[in-house]
Design a protein around this nucleic acid. Structure first.
Lengths: 151, 151
DNA sequence: GTCGAATTGATTGCGAGCAATTTAATTGTG
DNA sequence: CACAATTAAATTGCTCGCAATCAATTCGAC
């Protein structure tokens, strides 16, 4: 098998990306479990702490997740007492997600999470921001390569 | 809410990483579905094309996946006729995974995948290799921050 | 105003991921 | 040899993630 085997080189970027993303959620786990959250649930809370009362659709647009993922996830969070789901009165198709007082209160326990993670990643601020920019660019390119059906 | 809110900054590296990894597997999907593979299954095939007959444990070490993920995945691949699972004769605890002739043949259809993906990612070779190095470093740091129980 | 198209969530079904436990086999220690 | 500790897979149970489909609602052209 040649050294420059394309099926070997292929393990180069995509696989590390895949492995790093999983390692990242695993690194979050011990921090978030103290808050009773998983990583995707934490992402939902980040959006809600910033903008309470968004619809499921808006949540999906911000997190790039669809209702098939969000609906059951939000139901679990509702059972936990972190959020309330309310169907809109103006447009009965949409559902708004509101923080409960418990959900708002959880924010105070979450403020230490980002620093703890930054520490675990062991990158300088410049490295972190450069890597972020590059990964985001890759994400955008990949997103566009998945052409949504032009209506 | 202050502009430098840590819970806002937090969306900066981890979330793009998480989103990019998902976008990446979605970009693979149309290419791999022609081969009847999912992305994790493709990873298993990459290892087997390189080293046929590895054990489940070795597969797990290379892909950072445990038997809880691999066992059902390999069973599906066995049902598809791509691999054969055989319990070792020397050590009946371990299971070796072998390619079938069909699994070996699939390699020819897979050789075009890496280039197609490289195209979708739209990065130069230098960008690609730099990003790979950085993501891999991040992965290694994160892995170490998850101390395996020292026995 | 009415009817067809579009939009929003919910549902279903399946394939990962992973923690925790279980089972079976092997190793090491006395 | 005996038996405790270790190891490798498998199993269980839960949470994503997403494609495909469905139901309810709203929009828009007429």
């Amino acid at each position: 098998m040649p050294v420059d085997d394309p099926l070997k080189l292929d393990l180069q970027l995509c696989f590390p990306l895949y492995a790093a993303a999983r390692a990242m959620t695993q690194a979050y786990a011990p921090l978030l479990s103290k808050l009773g959250l998983t990583y995707p649930q934490y992402l939902v809370m980040l959006v809600l702490w910033e903008t309470d009362g968004v619809t499921v659709k808006e949540l999906g647009e911000r997190l790039y997740l669809d209702s098939g993922t969000l609906t059951p996830l939000l139901k679990r969070m509702e059972t936990q007492g972190l959020v309330r789901r309310e169907r809109s009165t103006e447009d009965a198709r949409s559902v708004h997600v509101h923080l409960t007082s418990q959900g708002r209160a959880l924010r105070r326990k979450a403020v230490s999470v980002p620093e703890a993670m930054a520490c675990k990643m062991g990158l300088s601020l410049e490295e972190l921001s450069r890597l972020r920019r590059e990964v985001r660019r890759l994400f955008e390119t990949l997103s566009k390569s998945q052409p949504e059906p032009t209506k």
